[in-house]
Amino acid sequence: MFKYILKRFVSMIITMFVIITITFLLMHSVPGGPFAAEKALPPEVEQALLEKYHLDDPLWKQYVDYVGGILRFDLGPSFKYRGLTVNELIVSGFPVSGRVGGLSILVILLIGIPLGIIAALKQNRWEDAVVRFLATLGITIPSFVLATLLLYVFSLKLDLLPSFGIESWKGYILPVVALSGYSISFVARLTRSSLLEVFRQDYMIMARAKGLSEFKILFKHGLKNALIPIVTVMGPLIAGLLTGSFVIEKIFALPGMGGHFVNGISNRDYTVIMGITVFYAGFLLIMVFIVDLIYGFLDPRIKLDNRS
């Protein structure tokens, strides 16, 4: 086990390194820079800024300096938010995105999976039809449409929930619903199809032939098998949700990471782009790693280390 974790850790570092290099090169190949504005700066000022942030150094030196910074967990200063470092941006933005994302994940698991189970158990009956209809709707409606719709109904017309900010718990409701709508539908559909597939397996008929209760057949024999594909999609999904959705954060005016990221790109705020990419990539790699660990727990046929 220890050897396996070590191996994964090394491969994660290599992956991170590749991601950092590619993002760095891509970013610098895009025309423009952090200080290119519509109204040109006086050349002396621009030169001074470039010098201050070492942007006049050769590219390889900037790259080496940046990687060196990452090794010290220093993601550098933001070029646009004066006086703020990227570390500070992440520290202030991540908790906001993380809370909204975390709640969404909870909602997805607590609603999506049970809906899928109900649909599978009542296959081709009205319960199934309702779930399938809602799930199809949820998958086809983009989150910004859903968000606008929710705002119109619950904030503007009914005046029940705030339209922006998360000062009180009420502020979380609309963003979480808008953010999780798609994923609930996706997880419900996946749970349904995965369970239906499992129901056809010989060991399920065997479980029935042993005279077990429907409850045991479903939860002991069925669900553990059916969960494997769901765990697969949950890893990246969790990483994506926790690190923030730009669209949702913009609509509900949440000061999360997603907003910083997109603003960073349009501002050519190099360190912010790099910093958030590195953060997101690291998060994703860790989630994928956790998913693999859960696999080993769910399915004994998957051996993590090759010792047998």
């Binding site: 397996q201 010989d202 060991y203 008929i205 065997m206 479980a207 029935r208 032939a209 042993k210 005279g211 077990l212 209760s213 002991k220 024999h221 553990k224 098998n225 769910l298 399915d299 004994p300 046929r301």
Partner: peptide, 24 residues
């Protein structure tokens, strides 16, 4: 019927590879 299945009347299926639950 559940009390009869696996208790008074049991079955052995054709394919031992797929009749056992792999995760239990």
């Amino acid at each position: 019927m559940r009390n009869i299945r696996g208790n008074r009347m049991s079955m052995i299926f054709q394919n031992p590879m797929t009749s056992l639950n792999a995760v239990l």
